[in-house]
C-alpha cells in the first residue's frame, strides 16, 4: 500500500477517502483522548459552570457541572467507537451466518428471518430499542447488545440477498459438480463472495448504531451523565440552549454529525470501490 495507491483509491472514490479520513480523525481522538484532552472529562469546577468558549481553561466552554466541553467531546469518541465496533462485530457474527443459511437453505430459517424483518419494519427501531433497554437495565453493555442484535437481521438480509444471487451462479454449480460437500460450497465458495457486498454496508450500519445509542442517551436511557457520551451531553446541553449557553450542546452535536457522516460516506464509497462494474478499466 504505497502512497500512490492511497492516492489512486482517493481518486476513484473521493467519497470513501473523505469518510475514511473523518473516521481516522475520530479514531486518533479516541485513542489519544487522554493526551489530547487538556482536562479529565469528568473533572468538575463547581465555581466555573457554563463559562463561554475561550474562558481559560475551557477551549469550548464549560457545562452546567463546570466540566470542560472540549475534553468531554474528545472523550465522547471513545463511546462512539465503543458502540460502533462491538455492535458491528455482533451484526457480523450474528447476521452473516443467519443470512448465509437463510439464503442457501431457505426453509424455516429464512421464514423466521423474514418475519423478524417484518416486525422491525413495522415498529420504529428507536421505540423497540427504547423498550428493550428500559426493560433490561440501562448499562452501556445493554445498549451495545440491543443495538447489535436489533440490527443483525438487517445485516442478515443483506447477506441473504447476496447468497440468493450467488446460489445459481455457475461457479457454485461447478463447485458442487467438483464434489464439494455442502458446508464447503457454502464456506469456501459462497461466503467470500457474499460478504464483499455486505462489507460495504457495515459502516452504514455502524453509523446507525452510533445514532441510536446517542438517541437513547438523549432520551435519558442508556448511557447516563456525567459520562462523556455525545447524546447524553446534548441532552444536558439542551437545557441551556434557550438561556443562551449554546456551546454545551453544539460541540458534541457537531461531533456526532461528523462521525455519522464519516461512516456513511465511507460505506457509500466502499460500495463504489468494491463494485467491479464501476472499477476503472486497466489492470
Amino acid at each position: 500500500m504505497s502512497f500512490t495507491h492511497v492516492l489512486g483509491i482517493a481518486r476513484r472514490s473521493p467519497t470513501f477517502a473523505v469518510g475514511f479520513g473523518i473516521i481516522l480523525v475520530f479514531a486518533v481522538m479516541a485513542a489519544l483522548a487522554d493526551v489530547i484532552a487538556p482536562l479529565p472529562p469528568t473533572l468538575s469546577f463547581p465555581y466555573a459552570t457554563l463559562k463561554p468558549p475561550g474562558t481559560d481553561p475551557f477551549l469550548w466552554g464549560s457545562d452546567g457541572n463546570g466540566m470542560d466541553v472540549f475534553s468531554r467531546t474528545i472523550h465522547g469518541a471513545r463511546y462512539a467507537f465503543g458502540i460502533a465496533l462491538p455492535a458491528g462485530v455482533i451484526m457480523a457474527v450474528v447476521g452473516i451466518p443467519l443470512g448465509l443459511i437463510a439464503g442457501w437453505r431457505g426453509g424455516w430459517v429464512d421464514e423466521i428471518l423474514l418475519r423478524i424483518l417484518d416486525v422491525l419494519r413495522a415498529f420504529p427501531t428507536i421505540i423497540l430499542a427504547l423498550a428493550i433497554v428500559a426493560a433490561t437495565g440501562q448499562g452501556f453493555l445493554n445498549v451495545i447488545l440491543v443495538v447489535g442484535f436489533l440490527d443483525s437481521p438487517i445485516f442478515a438480509r443483506i447477506v441473504r440477498a447476496e447468497v440468493l444471487s450467488l446460489r445459481n451462479a455457475t461457479f457454485v454449480r461447478a463447485a458442487v459438480a467438483a464434489g464439494n460437500p455442502e458446508w464447503r460450497v457454502l464456506l469456501v465458495h459462497i461466503l467470500p463472495n457474499a460478504i464483499l457486498g455486505a462489507t460495504a454496508q457495515l459502516p452504514l450500519r455502524m453509523a446507525w448504531a452510533v445514532r441510536i445509542s446517542a438517541t437513547l442517551a438523549f432520551i435519558g436511557i442508556g448511557v447516563q451523565a456525567p459520562a462523556p457520551e455525545w447524546g447524553a451531553m446534548i441532552r444536558q446541553g439542551s437545557e441551556y440552549v434557550i438561556s443562551g449557553e449554546w456551546w454545551v450542546a453544539l460541540f458534541p452535536g457537531l461531533a456526532l454529525i461528523a462521525m455519522v457522516l464519516g461512516l456513511n460516506l465511507a460505506g457509500d464509497g466502499l460500495s463504489d470501490l468494491l463494485d467491479p462494474k464501476r472499477r476503472a478499466t486497466g489492470k
Partner: peptide, 13 residues
C-alpha cells in the same frame, strides 16, 4: 479510451 489505473497512472487504450 482514457482510464486511470489503480496506480493512478493515466492509461490509453
Amino acid at each position: 479510451f482514457v482510464a486511470r489505473g489503480l496506480d493512478n497512472q493515466l492509461r490509453i487504450a
